[in-house]
Design a protein around this nucleic acid. Sequence first.
RNA 1: GCCCUCGUGGUGAAAUUGGUAGACACAAAGGACUUAAAAUCCUUGCCCUUUUGGGAGUGCCAGUUCGAGUCUGGCCGAGGGCACCA
Length: 842
Amino acid sequence: MERFNFQAIEKKWQSTFEKQKLYNNKSSKKFYCLEMFPYPSGKIHMGHVRNYTIGDVIARFKFMNGYNVLHPMGWDAFGLPAENAARENKLHPKKWTEKNISEMKRQLKLMGLSIDWDLEVSTCDEKYYKHQQEIFIDFYNKGLVKRKENYVNWDPVEQTVLANEQVVNGKGWRSGAVVERKKLSQWFFDITKFSDDLLKGLDKLNNWPEKVKTMQKNWIGKSIGCEIKFDIISEKKKINVFTTRPDTIFGASFLAVSVDHPICNEFIKDEKYNKFKDECLKVGTTEEALANAEKIGFDTKLLAVHPFIKGKKLPVYVANFILMDYGTGAIFGCPAHDQRDLDFAKKYNLEVTEVVSDNPSILKDFSSLTEAYSGDGTIINSDFLNGLKVDEAKIKIIKEIEKRKIGQKKITFRLKDWGISRQRYWGCPIPMIHLEDGSIVPVEKNELPIKLPEDIDLSQNGNPLENHKKWKNTFHKKTGKPATRETDTLDTFVDSSWYFLRFCSPNTTKEPFNIQKANYWMPVDQYIGGIEHAILHLLYSRFFMRALKKNNNKINDNEPFKGLFTQGMVCHETYKDQNGKWLTPSEVEKSSEGKYKKISDKSEVRVGASESMSKSKKNVVDPENMIKSYGADAVRWFILSDSPPEKDIQWSNQGVNAAYKFLQKIYNLCCVVNERSEEKNTLNKEFDLKMNSYVNKITKSINDFNLNVVVANVYEIYNLFNNHLNKEVSNKSLKANLINLMKILIPFTPHIAYECLEMLEAKDNNSWPKVNTKLVLKEKINMAIQVNGKTRDVIEIEKGVSQNSVIKLCKNNDKIKNKIDDKSVKRIIFVKDRIINFIINQ
RNA sequence: GCCCUCGUGGUGAAAUUGGUAGACACAAAGGACUUAAAAUCCUUGCCCUUUUGGGAGUGCCAGUUCGAGUCUGGCCGAGGGCACCA
C-alpha cells in the first residue's frame, strides 16, 4: 500500500493544467462557463473556493462532454478598499492592487482550476478601461447618459456618493457613517428606458433561480394605474394623484401628499408644518422604522373637489407615508380598501366608505373593522361603476377620466436611473471635459484612454483627481480652448457590466470586444456567483447588453447570462473565550472528552452558532492552510459534499479530514486493482450494469447541480468496488470500471484523478464515460410489495416485468403468500418498475 | 407591515417528482487488530418482542388517494428580501 503524496502530485499536475485549454477542436458546440470575478482584496477566502470549485466542475464536465469551453478569470480591480489601504499603508492603490492580484492568482492556481489564464483581464488596466470609456461615449451619443442635479447620499467619511442600495439603515454600507443628503450634479445611465424590457426579459430566463427573478421583478416594480387631477377649492392649483386603484375613486375621503410635494412650499414658514416635517425625518428612511411608525399627517386646510361626486370635498393632508420620488408624490385615500389609508383615516376621523365587496348583501362595518379589504369583488356605492368587477371598473373609470380630460392611464416603475458618478480616485475616469462656456463634451475617441494620474496625494480629504490640477486642466482638442476634465470616476458596477464580453477577445485593441467572437461565445451559458448580486450587478449587466445592442445591432443577444446559479455561503462555528473575545478556529482545539479548549492556556471555550465566515467574528479558515494540510483535491471534495451547492455549508476540520481519508482510499483502490492479476469473470455483467447505472445517475445529477448527490454516489461506487474485490469479477472489468470512476472524478478532484488514470494506463482521458442505454434498460430494480399500502417485502427484479409475473412471484414469496389468498384480494395496484399493492379485506 | 423560501434522526442531508422514508457522510457507543496509541475494519442506533416479527414516525391539525416527506386547506416555527410604491 502506497501513501498518496498529494503535495508532489498536485504540483505535477498543476503545471499541466496551466497549459491546458478546454477547447475541443472537433467541436462546434460552445459552452461559456463563468464565475463572478473576485475583488482583489489580498487573499482568497472559502467563499471563492466554493464558487470556483463549482465552476470548475461544470467547465471540466462540459469539456469532457465534447464542448468548446470558455473558462476565464479576471479581477474586479477598481474600488474603494484600495484607496483605504493606500492611506493606511502608504502604498499606491495600483501597487496594492497589483500585489493582491499576483498573490490571489498564485493561490487560485493551487486549487487546480481549469482557468485559461491567457484570457485574464483586470478592470484597472488601462487596456480594459480605455474601452469602457469608449462605451461611455457611445452611450452618451445614443442618449443613454444623462446629467441630473439630484439629492445624493453623501458619505462624510468616504467623501463620496453612495447608491441607495449602498445605504444600509441610513449608514454607508462600508464606512458605517451616517449618510447625509446633499445636492450634486451627477452622471446617470438611463436604465429606466429599458424598464419594461428588463422586466419582460426575465420570463425567458428559464435557467435562473425563481428567487432572483422575483427580486428583480420587485425591484423594477411595474404598476399600472392612472393619474387624476384634483382641483383645489379657491386656489388655482391642482393636485395630480397617481393610483393603481382608480376603481375605488368613489370611496375616496382625503388626499395625501409627500412632505417634499411642491404644494408644501407655502407652509415653509409654518411652525406646525416644520415640526411635522422634523417628525417625519426623525422616523428615518429605513423600511423597518417606517413599518413600525405611526401614520401621521398635517392638515393643510385645503380642500379638493371630488371629480365624480358633486359637492363632495376632500381634505388635503401631508402624510409621512407618501414618498415624492414615486408616482406623483400624491394619492387619494380610500380607507376601506387600503390598510395605510384606513389607519390614517381612523386616526383623523375621516370617512370610510365601502366600494368593493366580496358579498354585497352583507356590508362591512369599518368603524369596527381594523383590516382594509383589498381583494376582488363587486363595486358598490359607486354610481356608474356599480355591479362591475374590479378589473372591469378599472377600465371603465380610466376611460371616463380620459374622456373628461382630468387624467390618463399611466404605467409607473419603481426602478430609478443608475447614478454612476463617484468622487473617488481608484476608478475609471469619465471621458468628458467641461468647457469654459459651461458646456460638457466627450473627449475625442483617439485621445483614449484618459489615464488615471499616478502621482496623487491621498493624504488630503476628498477626491484626489479634483486636487490634481495638472491632470484636471486640459484643452478641447477641436477648438484648442482650455477645459477641465471630469473628475468623477465610474461606479465599479460599470466595470463588471461588460467584462464577460471582454473575455471573448481580451487582447483586441481596436474595440471593446470582437463582435464575431462575442456572438460565438455569448451568452454566458452558466454564470455562478453569490446571491448578494441578485439585483444590482445582474440587472446592470442586463441593461448593458441592451444598451450595447442599441449602439450596434450586429450584437445577437440582449441577455448576458443564459443560466445562473447562486451558491450558498461557507459557515463555521464561532468561538469565544472566557472574557467573551472571539477566537479563530486555529486558536481552539477539541479535547479527548469532546470539550473545546483554548490552545494557549487550556481554558474552556464557548461554542456559538455556525455563521457565515467573517473577519469580525474570526470564524474564518484560510484556504491555503487547508490546501497545505489536506491537499486541494480534499478541500474541493469536501466543499462539494454534504450540502447542496445552493445552500449554506458548514466548514469543519472533521469533514475535510474525512474527504482526505476517502481520497487516500481511492488511491489505494487503484493501486490494488492495478496490481491484481487473477482472472475470474462470472460476475462481470452485474458489476458492469451497476457501474453503468451510476454513470447515468451522476451525469444527470451534474446537469441538475446536485453535486452533493454525486459525492454520495461516488462513495457508493467505492463501496461497490470494495465489496467486489474479493468476488469473482475479472480484473479487466474492475479496471475498465475503475477508469470510468476516475474520469468521473476529474471535474471534482482533478489531480488525483489524472494521477490514477496515468497509473492505470488509461487512454482518452478527456472524454466523459459513455452511458450504455441498452444496459440501462437491463438494470435491475427493487420493487416494493405492499399489502394495504404497507411494504411487506422488497424483491429485486429486472426492468419491465409484467404484472402477472410479479403476482406469480408474490404468490411464491414466503412473506407474502399467506396474506394474499384469492378470496381476500379485492384489488391489485401495479405500477411497472415501482410497486405492487394488494388491497385485501381485513 | 408586505413579498419569497424552507421545516425529514445527535448533525449535514438523500428520496427516481404521488410509490421501500432516512441513501451517503459526520459525530457517538460497542467490538476486532495492537504491549499501547494512531491508522484501519466490523457492529449498533425510535418503541414492543430473546429472535422471527409487529407498531409509531418527515413541525402541528385536518383533507384527497389503494398509497402523502411530496398534493389541498388551516395553524405554528425558522430564514431571506424590501424602496410604507399608492
